[in-house]
Amino acid sequence: EGALGYVREFTRHPSDVLGNLNELRLRGILTDVTLLVGGQPLRAHKAVLIACSGFFYSIFRGRAGIGVEVLSLPGGPEARGFAPLLDFMYTSRLRLSPATAPAVLAAATYLQMEHVVQACHRFIQTSYEP
């Protein structure tokens, strides 16, 4: 009564959009960069990378990142640490195990994904408690 207007909020929208973006990634649709991680090529969307990682934000936000189609990360993370982060970017789920956590932590630090770094530390602390 007397409201100026109505807003319908679709609360599933963020996860539905992300799910579709992940499907586009898996099918190579509109992926615009190939990341060479430990020699393994991984296709992704720059827009998703820049939205999720401070490292990629600093690389792709400037003009220097415009023509980049293949990006190798020398001295960067190993694939077993990077791949779970790329899946996290597209699914919001980060798969961790005591065996992979240190590699994921190293990759998240390199990619400047501070919130994930904190989550990895929490996981490592709890999984190593006696």
């Binding site: 820049i50 939205a51 999720c52 990682s53 789920r93 501070e114 919130h115 994930v116």
Partner: peptide
Amino acid sequence: SEGLVATVKEAGRSIHEIPREE
């Protein structure tokens, strides 16, 4: 099988915030 995967919900911010245009 992959065995049991325990899921822990993280309610806090997940990624960096891109600064708003000054």
